[in-house]
Simulated assay, not measured.
Amino acid sequence: MRYLSQWLSCGVLVSLGLLGGGPNGALAADLGPPPAPVIEAPAMPGWTFRFTPYGWLTALDGTQTVRGRSVKVDASFVDIVEESDTLVALMGDFEARYGRFALLADVVWSKIGVESGNIRSRTLAPGVTGTLATSLGLDIEMAIAEVGAAYEVARSGALAFDILAGARYWYQEADLSFDVAAAVDIGDLEVAGARAFARSGSVDWLDPMIGARVRYTVAPGHELLLRGDIGGFGVGSDFSWQAIGAYGFEFGTYQGITFSGVIGYRALYVDYVQGEGRSRYEFDMLQHGPILGISARF
């Protein structure tokens, strides 16, 4: 019995050693030291994109001069819709953002007509004699393209402040039609029936611009945007300014694309002049009105 007890004790000790109970156990040697914890690097922010097709219900208030003949324009969007034979527009805004930095683009193309109830003759330019009595109509085809960049310089909670810079390109073709019942030198105008037409041909220019905007997150998915800029500085136009206020609200997500409604108001003024006398072209105009759009962010 004594030998049997000693044999059992040795067997237990050997078993404990094989199972790794001791410091030199075979299983402990196989397992090795515990693995070091894995620390994942924070994810870098990526690009996000936002495209907003919109409608700008534009009113016009200012002076249009074509071939030295000037008219005063004062037409609301309703006036233009009711009295115009032509009203076509294509508008869209695009923004690509990476962290604090953003690239901006905006395009407006429109073709509108204003009838005699909302325009009236003004003093003719130097070198243009006589009067054309009642002005009958104004047709404008216009494209405005903006490109620029913005940088977030300050943020406090839900409020962010950006500075921006870029350029605004203008393209226009304007036709004035007049009643030719009064005596006037119309040698440089096109005459069709009882109307004389002053046609500008294509006119374009490029304005540098600088500005700022404020973005405020009212609630998750709801953002208020205020933007202002000035431009021209005699490089293209004499001067221009723009003010935009808009409110965006998310209403759904589909296949990773977040859709939002956009409502707001936009005002854009420019004072551009080229030429003198019979070749004078001037667009001294404020365009303003509500904006309505749908934004897609991805």
Rank of each mutant, 00 (worst) to 15 (best):
R2E: 14
L8C: 13
G11F: 03
P23S: 15
G25E: 01
G25P: 01
L27E: 05
P33I: 07
P34K: 10
P34L: 13
A36P: 15
A43L: 14
M44C: 02
R50A: 15
P53D: 09
A59M: 05
D61K: 14
G62I: 09
R67D: 03
V73C: 12
I80G: 03
V81C: 09
V81H: 08
T86E: 14
L90D: 06
R97W: 01
G99I: 03
V107C: 12
G113N: 08
E115G: 15
G117S: 14
N118Y: 04
R122G: 10
R122E: 07
T123Q: 12
A133R: 13
S135C: 06
A160V: 02
S177H: 07
A183G: 10
A183Q: 09
D185V: 03
D185P: 07
E190A: 15
A192W: 00
G193M: 03
G193F: 00
A194I: 05
F197L: 13
R199H: 02
S200Q: 02
D204G: 06
W205D: 05
L206V: 12
G211D: 02
T217W: 06
V218C: 08
E223V: 10
L226I: 04
R227H: 01
D229Y: 05
Q242M: 07
A246M: 08
I257E: 10
I263A: 10
Y265W: 07
D271G: 05
R278C: 01
L286N: 08
L292T: 00
